[in-house]
Design a protein around this nucleic acid. Sequence first.
DNA 1: CCAATGGTTCGAAGATTGTGGAACCTTATA
DNA 2: TATAAGGTTCCACAATCTTCGAACCATTGG
Lengths: 111, 111
Amino acid sequence: MTTTNSDLPHPDEAEITLDAVLFALSDPARLEIVAQLAEGPLEMARCHLGDPEVPKSTKSHLMKVLREAGVIRNVAQGRGRLLSLRRDELDRRFPGLIGAVLAAQAGPGTG
Amino acid sequence: MTTTNSDLPHPDEAEITLDAVLFALSDPARLEIVAQLAEGPLEMARCHLGDPEVPKSTKSHLMKVLREAGVIRNVAQGRGRLLSLRRDELDRRFPGLIGAVLAAQAGPGTG
DNA sequence: CCAATGGTTCGAAGATTGTGGAACCTTATA
DNA sequence: TATAAGGTTCCACAATCTTCGAACCATTGG
């Protein structure tokens, strides 16, 4: 099999709330993950955080918060997981939001 | 005197962080306040929340979180306080962010 | 079948936030 | 000066979030 079962719950596009999305993005580690996924889907094992010492349970939890907020998708692939940003859906629901957040996080300098 | 002392601390524009702003906006009550202030400065006593029963200490705390994140300004005026959105500064620092958030909160319908 | 890889889930402890009463401060008004 | 209006601050308590080890689950490869 190429695709598998063992699926995690994801909110429908219509169920995604602004509050949950903003909260999910209000953490440096989670924002960093989102920035990486903005460049394309990534296997979880290839998604590195600032601190490389973070336990897998913690990393998994970060993904859970993002997933339950509707920010990312997390599907089984082989023995690992493929992560992706739900960009199209987020853009439809909250136009410009993700773009502004990513731009802000990319250049937080003095100007 | 028209202006008074008794000033509360506000972060400089350069000190405003994305994380803190997103967190401040990730709460329905605070977002509602921001939406009201987006239409112009408002005396705190004239700024009403969904629940009219909320104690003043709680209301004051909501304002504190927004102020310390750099989202709003809170200055003494007469015996009350004048609240205002730091729109220009936020727009310079995080272009498009506040606009996207306000638009999202204005129309969270099914589309 | 067995072991290894890659992640999720559970549970407990610690840290952060939210809530609201009481006390206090400032300004306006009588 | 007294009194009231409008808010902030302090404090304790409740609720939520974070962190991470341990146990467990699924897939791949011997």
